[in-house]
């Protein structure tokens, strides 16, 4: 497995480094090199182990819960009853995340435009950039408490509170990834547009944004994927509905991550099965977003 065992004449993807062919490299040095290579290889394998096991169990334990009713029926009246479906939570997750996206993406892209097209290396832009980086580190539960303090205490438990908390989590991610994409747009395009006498806002909207769009879309979708899987910001902001509620501005709501957390802490088989089913559904949703983001960025990016 280790590179040192490769015979010199074997067809290797890269040509073998010169030291491997020399007899003068002492056994001790070869062993140390082999151990180091082994460590790196084992690290990669070690990271795969949890991935395989988590996936395996989620699919195995979640799949048999999921049927047609899973997507068409609301939750049963009490958790210990079997039957019912997860429609309320699936719809809840989608609408709450949608509203979060509607807030975070325009704001985030706007901020990125300021940072890359106007502020650049100015003092204010540097502060905003730094704080956006720092904001990505704010724990999601703190976002939940924040929304509880400024919104839920006044307006009650509604889906929009969850959207606010998720939006606040997404905002810095969207800003930093969008700015990265705007920076990849060559300055030649800006100069060309300037030379034609276009105003700055015109240049940004008609030339720069279209050029950076695939990257911005893919970065935003990764932020959506991250937000859709968050539980902590929803714990004390959206309430606990059992029926589908598509209106985030009225009445309590529910979401898949919440259903996983709540059902996992109940001592009933039906509830635990429901938790695994919700986990499978959530993982599929998150992965669809992640994969689409990857495809968009791989298919449309010219400069990478």
């Amino acid at each position: 497995m280790t590179a040192t065992m490769t015979p010199p004449n074997a067809p290797t993807p890269a040509e073998p480094p010169e030291w491997m062919l020399r007899r003068s490299v002492s056994a001790g040095r070869r062993v140390r090199n082999g151990l180091a290579t082994m460590w790196m290889l084992l690290s990669v394998l070690a990271a795969m182990v949890p991935l395989v096991f988590v996936f395996g169990y989620v699919v195995q334990k979640g799949a048999h819960v999921i049927s047609r009713a899973w997507f068409t029926k609301d939750l049963p009246i009490v958790d210990q009853f079997p039957g019912g479906g997860m429609k309320a939570a699936i719809i809840g997750t989608l609408v709450i995340t949608l509203w979060a996206t509607l807030m975070a993406v325009p704001l985030g892209v706007g901020a990125a435009i300021y940072l890359n097209e106007y502020g650049r290396h100015g003092r204010l832009a540097r502060i905003i950039r730094f704080m956006a980086d720092v904001m990505t580190g704010v724990p999601s539960i703190v976002m939940g408490l924040f929304v509880f303090a400024i919104f839920t205490l006044k307006y009650g438990l509604i889906g929009f509170g969850g959207s606010l908390a998720l939006g606040a989590l997404m905002l810095p991610i969207v800003i930093r990834s969008s700015e990265e994409m705007l920076r990849l747009v060559p300055d030649d395009l800006r100069h060309a547009s300037d030379a034609l006498g276009a105003r700055r806002w015109h240049t940004v909207l008609r030339v720069i944004l279209p050029a950076a769009l695939p990257g911005i879309v893919s970065g935003s979708m990764l932020a959506v994927a991250r937000a859709a899987g968050e539980t902590a910001p929803l714990l004390f902001t959206i309430g606990a509905a059992r029926n589908t509620n598509t209106n985030v501005f009225r009445g309590p709501n529910t979401a898949l991550p919440l259903q996983i957390f709540n059902n996992a802490t109940r001592p009933f088989d039906a509830a635990i099965a429901r938790a695994w089913g919700s986990a499978l559904t959530l993982v599929v949703i998150v992965f669809v977003f992640t994969v689409i983001a990857r495809i968009v960025s791989a298919r449309f990016s010219v400069r990478r």
Partner: peptide, 24 residues
């Protein structure tokens, strides 16, 4: 592929890790 797979590790929601962690 390795980079993608490591990124997938980050894509799994926290609550799913928790569910797997407590029951498995």
């Amino acid at each position: 592929p390795i980079v993608y797979v490591i990124d997938l590790l980050a894509a799994i929601p926290s609550v799913v890790y928790g569910l797997w962690g407590v029951f498995v």
